[in-house]
Design a protein around this nucleic acid. Structure first.
Length: 560
RNA sequence: CUGUCCGUAGCACAGCCGGAUAAUGCAUCAGACUCCGACUCUGAAGAUCGAGGGUUCGAAUCCCUCCGGGCAGGCCA
């Protein structure tokens, strides 16, 4: 348990004991209801505060401030890291840390080192995080860049919080998208040799399709022109698709994303799992036929509308392989939790997927979907329209050519998933300190530099005693340690909320407090004891920053 | 029309399972290096938390209505 959590737990016990004592003495009559201990926003209101006296006013039939007085008179704070209490406002009881708290925090960080911030909250539960899953029919776009940074970082956050995480990419290598891909390739190929081939409105118009057709022609010439359309399409897809999938893997790897598994939709067709979904639902009586199509009674399982599983032409709709895929994750492979990172445009589809899983006897609560709002690209203060059809969208690759990986991975995690992201290209390309990642990295480099300078002057880093650490007492030092103390709780909260942006905000605050400390306090000093204590503080800050940057797979430079 | 997410300072955004003076960055203005790296720091100014009602000791936070915006709702994915 962390110093911070332990302190709060012991305080809670002390408050309960105090109330118990007061009841025994007859000072209070009634039953103590639940209360909370929290960290006040305004720290002049103490380091911790409780609403115990206010929530119990009704039960004890006394004014909150009177109850607060009784609690404070009876409380025994021995061994709690709390040195004094104060009654304030409508009846809050405020508590102030003893200096032993701060020394405990620094000792904890030193002991735990690169595992400081980790938690066993997840108890080793197996979690599958699926993210990006871009269509292999073309290049990835900026939305995938956000999804990638979010999904990969969320996976890391969950690992730090004690979950057993698998990262997975779902390849849509079957179905309509592939048919469209084949059509596009075929037409581009034929255009190289014959007139009279026009690209349909709903085909892929990107340059990548033209390039594939050309590359094929360069290698195999016009050998396909006189073949049947079926053969031609298959040959072109067999040629282009593997290249695209390799490209996805390569580009994502460059983005520092490495998956545990690439799952192919086609495997679900081959294994019969897609067909099995329809069969199972039909066996259980959850389907009906209408207008030649097979419908699923989704409304009976909480969805807003029934939907089609098998079209009147006999082909399954896109949902069926998706259902089979999620059934596979939870029922076949037995993950305790499946987390999907989806674009917000898929939000209406989540209840349907869950309805189908429920109908199949799977606990739909095991599926959590993180909806990610669109990225709005802004250049020169104007929104860039992203048109997929024209193929003019900014791709992940061009984005990463323009901005550093560190910046992209951090930047995309500065905002919670379910809020629109305004991505200012000028700003990102500028690589200025406006991008918070530089601010955080600078703090890290600065600490390394201080230590290097001290070392070159012959200063040896010593083990600080608790007495040494008590020398840390300025506001800047105390606030900084206070912030460092909360890292583990932040990790847990970020995991609980599926929100890595909590951590990037947190580490930015750590960097801010460090820079403030740096400006206010000199580490180098004639006073050896104080200097050693400040070195210990610097080391603790460096550990926290390094751990966060490692978590996000961002470099922690020793100089910049 | 129905569902869903959002609306907080000039801009971009925290805070949202109710708590004390609504936090931060950019931009603006005024300051700080003969001193461990100024990619930094200090200070000022800037918000009737979209509007109205309700719930209660207390609402940016919970409930209802309305206004404004994004996205869905098709045998497309």
């Amino acid at each position: 348990m962390t110093t911070s959590a332990l302190t709060q737990q012991r305080l809670k016990e002390a408050i309960l004991a105090s109330v118990g004592a007061a009841i025994n003495k007859g000072e209070l009559n009634g039953e103590m209801p639940g209360f909370t201990i929290e960290i006040p926003a305004d720290r002049t209101h103490g380091d911790l505060a409780t609403n115990a006296a206010m929530v119990s006013a009704r039960a004890f039939r006394l004014a909150p401030r009177k109850i607060a007085e009784i609690i404070c008179e009876n409380i025994d704070l021995t061994g709690t890291n709390i040195s004094r209490t104060e009654i304030a406002g409508p009846g809050f009881i405020n508590f102030f840390y003893d200096k032993s708290f701060y020394a405990d925090v620094l000792n904890e960080i030193k002991t735990k080192g690169d595992s400081y911030g980790r938690s066993d909250m997840g108890q080793g539960k197996r979690v599958l995080v699926e993210f990006v899953s871009a269509n292999p029919t073309g290049p990835m776009h900026v939305g995938n860049a956000r999804g990638g940074a979010l999904g990969d970082s969320l996976s890391s956050v969950l690992e730090w919080a004690g979950f057993d995480v698998s990262r997975e990419f779902y390849i849509n290598d079957a179905g309509n998208q592939i048919e469209k891909f084949a059509t596009s390739l075929e037409i581009r190929y034929m255009q190289l040799f014959c007139d009279g081939y026009e690209m349909p409105e709903d085909s892929y118009h990107g340059q990548d399709i033209i390039d594939h057709a050309k590359n094929f022609a360069d290698k195999y010439g016009d050998s396909l022109v006189n073949e049947s359309s079926d053969k031609r399409r298959k040959a072109l897809v067999d040629f282009a698709l593997p290249q695209n999938i390799e490209g996805l893997e390569r580009d994502l790897k460059k983005y520092r994303i490495v998956y545990d598994n690439w799952f192919r939709e086609s495997s679900l067709h081959k294994s019969g799992e897609v067909k099995k979904v329809v069969d199972l639902l039909t066996e259980k009586g959850h389907t009906y036929e209408s207008e030649g199509a097979v419908w699923f009674r989704a409304t009976e399982f909480g969805a807003d509308k029934d939907f089609v599983l098998v079209r009147s032409n006999g082909l399954p709709t896109y949902v069926v392989p998706d259902i089979a895929y999620h059934y596979n994750k939870l029922a076949v492979r037995g993950f305790d939790k499946a987390i999907d990172i989806f674009g917000a445009d898929h939000h209406g589809y989540v209840p349907r997927l869950k309805a189908a899983l429920t109908a199949l006897g799977v606990d739909a609560d095991k599926l959590d979907v993180v909806l990610m709002q669109m990225v709005r690209l802004v250049r020169n203060g104007e929104t860039i329209k992203v048109s997929k059809r024209s193929g003019k969208a900014i791709t992940l690759v061009t984005l990463l050519d323009e901005i550093p990986i560190d910046a992209a991975r951090f930047f995309f995690n500065t905002r919670e998933a379910n809020s629109h992201f305004e991505f200012d290209l000028d700003l990102a390309i500028e690589q200025s300190s406006k991008n918070p990642v530089y601010y955080v990295q600078y703090a890290h480099a600065r600490i390394c530099n201080i230590l290097k300078n001290l070392e070159s002057e012959g200063v040896e880093i010593q083990n600080c005693t608790t007495q040494d650490l008590y020398r840390l007492s300025t506001d800047e030092e105390i606030e900084l340690i206070d912030k460092l103390a909360l890292f583990t709780e932040e990790t847990e909260a970020a995991a609980r909320d599926y929100d890595p942006s909590r951590i990037t905000r947190y580490v930015t605050e750590v960097a801010t407090l460090f820079h403030k400390f740096y400006n206010a306090c000199r580490v180098k000093s004639e006073d050896t004891q104080l200097m050693q204590a400040r070195i210990a503080l610097c080391l603790a800050v460096r550990t926290v920053i390094k751990n966060v940057l490692d978590m996000f797979k961002i470099t922690a430079p020793e100089q910049m």
